[in-house]
Nucleic acid binder design. Structure first.
Lengths: 186, 186
DNA sequence: ATTCCTATAGACTGATTAGTCAATTTAATA
DNA sequence: TATTAAATTGACTAATCAGTCTATAGGAAT
């Protein structure tokens, strides 16, 4: 990826997250990225293409962070905790990307094509869960409900420690995971 | 409240939720409400005042819906379930208001004054929780974490049934509550 | 050296925006 | 009925916006 293209993505991520899509002008993005508006439209044919590429880029970052969490030697709870912790840590350390994802995941500017492309990449992650289900360690709630419960727990945990940074430590992180785990386990 | 003022609030709620704050023009709001732009600015001195009054109004609606859930004769779990169900049902039945609240609760357009005013009204709701804590029915997680866990569970449940409306029935609602309850209870 | 393509710049444009203002209608009161 | 204040209108304006266009600069290939 070209250097200026990356600068434009970084600037957009920051500004879209802070002020929203319509609240951010392409002129501001160009200025923050240190390029001319013409350069922005050279790499991205419209503001909408820019936000779609940005959505794809942030979701890819998230997926990279959470790959490979199914070590058959470890107990299921441990595998699941690693996944949960990776998601929460991504939310806290890469908070701009995480906030962008949750703000724009149901935005009308993101085309369904963009969403499909990235959702397809998510399949692997689900393996952990399927294993736990097979081993009957977790409740027999249907798959979609369990997944939304997992994601909801991650989002509310990240939001919580964003609101109370002084509470962020290993002990409270364990507490938050146990809330999630005791809900989902048998 | 004057009739046209209410029409303007209703139109704003719909349009802000669908297209965002910056994505909605005052001209569109006025047209949807069936008034002239001059009338809009007669009742609301700016677009920002409009969204702040709307935030206050939607949060008041939410609070009205969830009042008085501490019947000492009933077991704690039942009281808490009523509160949880009222929140979830509000999210599903008044989905515009609910979506507006979660979309704009950390928006820069809502002043901290507006937020304070409404948060103060929330105190009463917490009584249920305090009772359960005293009776040692729930885990000794600190107060703020438990509250954020409760709200997170409500949001993810509402989102879930919004995504899969065909799954919305009493049985699955109970399932979703049990996920929450088994997390928080001892 | 010449050709040709990509990268970069920033002035410019037509469209849209939040908010104003002077004129008019409505409603209430004296 | 006459008077006055509040409600309502929509044309108007100055500012801002997304995207275009023309002009250069650089570098690779011939």
């Amino acid at each position: 990826m070209k250097e200026k293209e990356q600068k434009i993505l970084d600037a957009s991520l920051k500004l879209f997250t802070e002020r929203g899509f319509q609240g951010t002008s392409t002129a501001e993005i160009a200025k923050t990225a240190g390029v001319a508006t013409g350069t922005l439209f050279h790499y991205f044919k419209s503001k909408e293409e820019l936000i779609n590429r940005l959505y794809f880029y942030t979701k890819e970052s998230l997926l990279t962070e959470i790959s490979a969490h199914c070590d058959d030697k470890k107990p299921f709870k441990e595998n699941l905790k690693e996944l949960w912790l990776d998601l929460v840590n991504f939310g806290i350390n890469d908070s701009n990307k995480f906030q962008f994802i949750i703000t724009f995941h149901c935005s009308p500017y993101i085309t369904s094509l963009t969403k499909e492309e990235i959702e397809n990449k998510l399949e692997g992650t689900l393996e952990v869960y399927k294993k736990g289900l097979k081993e009957q360690e977790i409740k027999e709630v249907y798959f979609e409900l369990a997944m939304d419960y997992l994601w909801g727990s991650v989002v509310s945990t990240v939001d919580h420690f964003g609101k109370y940074p002084e509470k962020f430590n290993a002990h409270n992180l364990d507490l938050a995971f146990e809330l999630f785990w005791d809900g989902i386990s048998k």
